[in-house]
């Protein structure tokens, strides 16, 4: 039990809450699924309740919702133009989901769903899937112009196209790895420093005095994590907008 408390990886373990096994597949309702539901519930409830009064002069909560709306709207319009606004619900949902998931993960004893690469990769695959499907339905094979830069000599074309294809395929990987690595590394660091506080204060008066240092560090790291939670949600949304721009205007 004591080993569990200072184990920095323990917080990422997936535990089934309601075991469900269908046809040899483990479809259990886990703590990860619980927190995904909680994320969706919190985000929807916040947006619904804060905008329910619909006053012309917004109150505090309503202005937070409006700021989030305008923030994502401007981001999308800057990156993909007014045509990109048809993807606004998609990008806004992604942004709110990642942001709320990151912020919920900052609470003690809460599970951080974005610290699992399969979750972030699922989100990134959704983005790239949208880009590819929309690009092909809108432009047909003209979408493949994305992989052929202008002004490249013909004899270099096969090599360049191969590299561009790999570069395109690596986008969801880097998108998901970035979010996952940030959240994982931040939470492990936080846990390690908090663990120092616990194990130092068990050493008597000197230990308690010494544990002030890692405690201060943990507080500072919590502030940094809060920033990272916002920053990564923002980066995720910005890159989504840029990729959607490629689907809308391949080859420009």
């Amino acid at each position: 039990m004591a080993a569990d408390k200072v184990d920095p990886i323990h917080q990422f373990q997936i535990q089934p809450i309601i075991p469900i096994h269908i046809g040899g597949y483990d479809l259990s309702f886990t703590n990860s699924a619980l927190f995904m539901l909680a994320t969706v519930a919190v985000a929807s409830a916040f947006l619904y309740l804060s905008t329910s009064s619909r006053s012309l002069v917004p109150g505090r909560l309503q202005s937070v919702s409006e700021m989030a709306y305008e923030f994502v709207g401007n981001m999308l319009r800057d990156a993909a133009g007014t045509q990109g606004m048809k993807f606004f619900p998609f990008v806004f949902s992604l942004f709110m989901f990642v942001l709320v998931a990151n912020l919920l993960g900052l609470f003690p004893y809460f599970f951080t769903i974005t610290s699992h690469i399969i979750v972030t990769f699922g989100l990134a695959a959704l983005v790239i899937g949208t880009v590819v499907v929309y690009g092909f339905t809108k432009h047909g094979f003209g979408f493949l112009k994305l992989f052929v830069p202008h002004g490249v000599p013909v004899y270099l074309l096969p090599l360049v196209v191969l590299i561009e294809v790999i570069s395109f395929v690596s986008r969801p990987v880097s998108l998901s790895v970035r979010l996952f690595a940030n959240m994982l590394a931040g939470h492990i660091t936080l846990k390690v420093f908090s663990g120092f506080v616990v194990s130092l204060s068990a050493l008597g008066a000197v230990g308690v005095a010494g544990s002030v240092l890692p405690l201060a560090m943990a507080v500072a790291l919590t502030a940094l994590e809060l920033l990272v939670a916002f920053l990564q949600a923002y980066v995720f949304a910005v890159l989504t907008c840029m990729y959607l721009n490629d689907a809308l205007h391949p080859g420009h």
Partner: peptide, 16 residues
């Protein structure tokens, strides 16, 4: 942030 971004881009390219 920039360092993490660039390194993840580079690693993703090689891995893919």
């Amino acid at each position: 942030g920039q360092a993490l971004k660039l390194s993840s881009e580079f690693i993703a390219g090689i891995v893919v």
